[in-house]
Write a protein that binds this DNA or RNA. Structure first.
Lengths: 224, 224
DNA sequence: GACGACCCCCTACGGGGGTATGAGCCCAGG
DNA sequence: CCTGGGCTCATACCCCCGTAGGGGGTCGTC
């Protein structure tokens, strides 16, 4: 199964170079090219590539907007290619935007040719790959922005027994006492007892505050 | 300038293999080995390597703890190597922990030898590098975790009046009806009316679920 | 002016939530 | 062995919460 690739870049020579490089691989077919984002989308819709190589900077519609359009397609468009962003400069603002949009990778154009080829394969396989400098920034951002699931948690949450923690989590899921009892196969009164202990230990007043604590402590997280 | 590397892995054969592979490179010197985390730290302190190849799973002190110790050294220890984590399995829990601790990379042991070599160079240069599957997860996590202030919010939250939104936020702060009434200078019954409307509009059952909605929608955020 | 929003407040009531107290069971550790 | 912690459940009570079903006020807008 060959990997179908299109190349979107405003410089014809760059397109030609990448095309030559990739076409030389037995498992890669370059099935289209385009000089800007708008045309790139068009070509993508027509050729249904597995991977779109997309330059960040382009006239008309830039790579970011094009990537967003491809990765969040309008209703009726079923095809959704992987997008591998390329850039000449090491511009970080664009990186985050592109990743948020759902791009599968971000490479610098000065990377070794072998890297580009393997990147195409990696991305086609559904994985992701970033330029090392980008990776470093992403990790730094990641590490800094959530310095371990809150310290608060281990402190106060530690006083709770396993059962109590379990009940607290179900409270934080919005279940009533009756529902919790059903889920855990308990009498409702037992649930109440557990909740009572939880509230006492954590010095909370009611289940609403318990929900807050669950979120603030990291026991449950938004979107989980 | 050659890159000084030590290898920390509990399997002697793995150490030997990596050492042979890396030593064959003109710019890489393997200056030490250790079979577990504790000894790895010791060797690192003595040999001052540029890069520590660290297996995740090891007896005694595992790779995570060792990485943390190396990357957050006690006072008086000036040397701080780059840490490149290695793992046989694709275990994601460890990945995040390691990255948080400050590791510069995360590779699977089944990666091509060339990848390991280039990874060592990349890491030594101060950049970072992850296995493609890890990269994918990190990106997904990054993109999902802040897809621009939640889409959900604008949708459902839009139906609420300013006053209702205000009341909802106070609920999410853990206030009782009476307290909300006091804060907003209202009769308690008025608060109840507002809450009733909020619950109806958002199709929630009680204030606990309202708290959940407030967090999930981004109306309030943990740590704020 | 009428109409629709948003806001404020009332009485009344049922049910769920939280508290208090006590008791029985199992199990690990001293 | 027996003590203590964790888990379970019961009975009884209070009150906050949420709902139902009203009334009245101020705005804008048609």
């Amino acid at each position: 199964m060959t990997i179908r690739v299109i190349i979107v870049d405003d410089q014809a020579m760059v397109r030609a170079g990448f095309a030559a490089l990739l076409s030389a691989q037995a498992d890669i077919d370059v099935v289209g090219e385009a000089p800007d984002g708008a045309l790139g989308i068009e070509v993508s819709r027509r050729t249904h590539p597995d991977v779109v190589l997309m330059d960040v900077r382009m006239p008309e519609m830039d790579g970011l907007a094009a990537a967003r359009a491809l990765l969040d397609p309008p209703v009726g468009v079923v095809h959704r290619p992987k997008v591998l962003m390329l850039t000449t400069f090491d511009v970080d603002d664009y990186v985050y935007e592109a990743l948020r949009a759902g791009a599968s990778g971000f490479l610098l154009k000065d990377a070794p040719p072998a890297d580009l080829i393997s990147a195409v394969r990696v991305v086609a396989a559904g994985e992701a790959l970033l330029a090392p400098s980008v990776t470093r920034r992403l990790i730094a951002d990641f590490a800094q922005q959530r310095p371990a699931p809150r310290r608060n948690r281990s402190l106060r949450l530690k006083g709770l027994t396993p059962r109590e923690t379990e009940v607290l989590e179900l409270i934080a899921r919005g279940l009533s006492n009756q529902e919790i009892a059903g889920r855990l196969v308990l009498a409702e009164q037992t649930v109440k007892t557990h909740i009572g202990r939880v509230l006492a230990k954590l010095q909370l007043r009611d289940r609403a505050q318990a929900v807050i604590f669950a979120y603030e402590s990291g026991l449950v997280a938004p979107g989980s």
